[in-house]
Amino acid sequence: MNTIPIRHKWEPYVWLLPSILLMSIFVVFPIGIVFKLSMSEISKAGVVGAWNNFANFRAAFRDPAFGTVMQNTAVWVVSVVGLSTLLGFVTAMALNAEFRGRRVARSIVVFPWATSLVIQASVWNYIIKGEYGNLNNVLLNLGIIKSAVNWRATYQIEFAWECGVGIFVTIPFVAFTVLAGLQSIDNAYYEAATVDGAGFWRKLWNVTIPLVKPSLTVCTVLNIIYVFNSFPIIYTITKGAPANKTDTMVTLLYMRAFYDNQKGPATAMSVIGFAILCVCAGVYMMVTMRKEEQ
């Protein structure tokens, strides 16, 4: 009789053990190594030396591109997460409505998410190429333009394209997470609201959004992390050029580590990025959860 409570006490840990082991080996251990490296001297060839009194962090903050890149990262995360959440929500509402071909529409929406980011970014890179880009070809063939247009005339425009691609590939994730939330809402709420005389907007604000909020919170936190750490789009389209003006934190630290041979400052940047993400995700979760409790 006594064995049952003991088994119950240990059982969750036994089931969790494989995940804990995997997480420890592939997540916690590498994070620990990066923290150690960020405080060590690393030669250009990759030889790890002694503790260097936070010199890597000082070098990272003094990097001439650091300010621009932090600004770019903020624009990148806010625009991609913000707009993809808004557009993804609208898409989810549309996909939740009953219409002919709904299944086909749902499959089409998931395509961008099911395709590898590098392929997506490469395809967009071809679309907006000036000389033999598909966009120019289509517009020229349709007679809309007379000669090829340079769709990436300045680095600001190039960065805007990158944000656009980021939004395009993120919409399906938001749409399907919100859709799952929408499908779990009991129709009785809407019927009750309709009886009370609520219109579309009223139902949206007072029924849909509050009930979808838990899925939206999880989705936004995950999105902040994914988008902040997103590498392929920017690396494929501009590689951060010209002179780091289209870099974000992740592409900059990659270039510093593997192209400029500044491995020490690069590991410091990755630790800084990790800290920023922890704070952002933590604050967002705390704020939304507190509101839910209220």
């Binding site: 000036g130 000389e131 340079n150 190039e158 389209i237 050029a241 010209p242």
Partner: peptide, 19 residues
């Protein structure tokens, strides 16, 4: 038009295409 992002291979393709 974009020397900061057009690599030599892009240029070689443009040269090959007569552009």
């Amino acid at each position: 038009p974009n020397p900061a992002t057009q690599t030599r291979y892009d240029l070689q393709d443009m040269f090959g295409a007569g552009k």
